[in-house]
Amino acid sequence: MNTPLLQVQDLRVTFTTGRGAVHAVDGVTFDVGAGEVLGLVGESGSGKSVTLRAIPRLLHDNAAVSGRVLWHGQDLLTIPDERLRAIRGGQVAMVFQEPMSALNPVLPIGMQIDEVLVAHTDMDRAARRRRAIELLGLVGIASAATRLDQYPHEFSGGMRQRAMIAISLAAQPALLLADEPTTALDVTIQDQILTLLLQLVSELGMAMVLVTHDLGVVAETCDRVAVMYAGRLCETGPVELVFNRPRHAYTDALLRSMPGDGAAGAMLTPIPGQPPRIDSPVPGCAFAPRCSYAEPRCTTERPVLTAYAPGHDSACYAATRLPARVEEGAA
């Protein structure tokens, strides 16, 4: 990887709520290379979706965001609104979890694609219509010309997600931010949408940040993975390396808790306890209270990201004590 396409540096997001400040994202740093698929994974409340939405500044007004989000040398967090609007939906596009609430229910799909083309290209009406038909074809929607005039409610769940992907691709983005794009879908439809996204990434040379809670989805689709817990980045690295040789006790525990790790019918290995409340700062490692590898300093000193292999960083004092899941070389 040469110069990264996107650099997120020390991102912090704090929400002001009626019950005080909530530190949803607490110092997250990662890069996305051109054409790369990065999985942002974590359980509910880990801050993965907030991180993703902070990149194109899509958070509500009660969010205080700091840090830097560098896109071609400019910081998306500080550039003027007008320049941001030219990038958002253009070079950087987004796909949401719930297509029914992300799509406009009173506009035909064709018009929603057209809006993006009007905003980000200088095509004339006829060219835009041709491009819209081409886009629906690209995402696998049959009889595209008729479908353009239909409304979101006339589409099935899987077709709506395809339509949303078509809208996001309209201006040929270099980076697609996908927030749990298949979580609301059935497994065979999820399989179709993942196939489509992978195909688009390789054919269009697009990069993608895929937010998901499903480690299986990460293993099958991503080049690199960033694991989040309680608003912090635990571990980041190439998918095979992280899953075969985790260097953070949370990643290790998460992988172990999944069914399919041991024999059928065997007891699973849950993670004891609950994720911490993020309305008060945690002094040491946020995972320490639930961690079976914790040592005294874990609760007082916050571990920093350290490299254990090229591109494989982890913030865990137990990094070298964790067992390999797959014998090195066997995979």
Partner: peptide, 19 residues
């Protein structure tokens, strides 16, 4: 169609069509 955490999951996935 079920995605799995297993060695070489990514290569296997990229070399197949939707289920």
């Amino acid at each position: 169609a079920v995605p799995h955490v297993k060695p070489a999951a990514r290569e296997a996935r990229r070399n197949r069509q939707a289920a």
